[in-house]
């Protein structure tokens, strides 16, 4: 099986090609450089393996949640590759992929991928042995950790990973007081997306609606409405709307 994978939802952007048991990955070492770097990295990976895009069995895109802009760069790139190149798309849930890839290297306890959603909010999920025990979604930080702790065994170890750790280190330490836990500074990457996609292809019953998609079927999973829509709904719309650019 050969897959191209794209991960643009976090602070760093990466692309990977999985070919059988082998994964080759390229990542930026600069934050917020996603648009500029993504296509060249894909081009480089294809050239390296002497592949053409059509040699791929699928293009796996991490569709969110995460940075809204990042999600869009990944999804629009994936879609356009499919529209012009015909290779089917795989919609990979970001938190699930991140959680499973961290569990793979850890194989114990509960893994909580946690992404910073600002103002004490996170996009997060909790995974034990490749199963979702707290569904990936938008939460208040304390609400999420409360749910995890309620699900976890008393002695069960928690691994919390992602840019949510950068943002909320002190609060997490307080909320996990008295528990066994590790905070890990690592971010979601395309290798994890590729592995998740390969698993998904092997379990079509569970992931059928995320496989074999065309460009008009690959949807971003923002998991939050825009601030302007939120304020319109609440009736607090007023300042902060840009003029025509």
């Amino acid at each position: 099986m050969r897959l191209l994978a794209i991960e643009t939802t976090g602070p760093y952007c990466s692309a990977a090609i999985l070919d059988g048991d082998n994964i080759e990955e390229r990542a930026t070492d600069e934050k917020l450089n996603h648009l500029k770097s993504l296509s060249p990295m894909i081009g480089e990976l294809l050239a390296l393996g002497e592949y053409s895009l059509k040699d791929m069995d699928g293009i796996a895109v991490s569709v969110g949640p995460g940075s809204f802009t990042g999600i869009r760069i990944g999804v629009s790139t994936g879609r356009a590759l499919n529209q012009a190149g015909g290779v089917p798309l795989i919609s990979v849930p970001t938190l699930f992929a991140f959680g499973c890839s961290e569990y793979e290297g850890n194989k114990e306890g509960i893994v909580c991928p946690m992404l910073n959603a600002r103002r004490n909010q996170v996009y997060a999920g909790a995974y034990r042995d490749f199963c979702e025990i707290v569904p990936g979604g938008p939460y208040m930080l304390d609400e999420f950790l409360g749910m995890v702790i309620a699900e976890a065994g008393e002695e069960e170890h928690l691994l919390i990973v992602g840019d949510g750790v950068d943002a909320y280190e002190e609060q997490i330490k307080e909320l996990c007081e008295g528990r066994s836990f590790t905070l890990k500074r690592k971010y979601q990457d395309a290798a994890g997306v590729a592995e998740m996609a390969a698993d998904m292809l092997m379990n079509p019953e569970a992931f059928g609606d995320r496989l074999n998609l065309s460009y008009n079927e690959l949807e971003p999973e923002y998991m939050r409405m825009t601030e302007a829509e939120q304020r319109l709904k609440e009736g607090t719309l007023g300042k902060g709307i840009a003029g025509k650019g």
Binding site: S39, L53, I73, S76, T77, R79, A80, L81, Q83, G85
Partner: peptide, 13 residues
């Protein structure tokens, strides 16, 4: 960036 990412991917593909 939606236009740019899309155009680049068309070109790449």
């Amino acid at each position: 960036l939606i236009g740019v990412a899309t155009a680049k991917a068309y070109s790449l593909a």
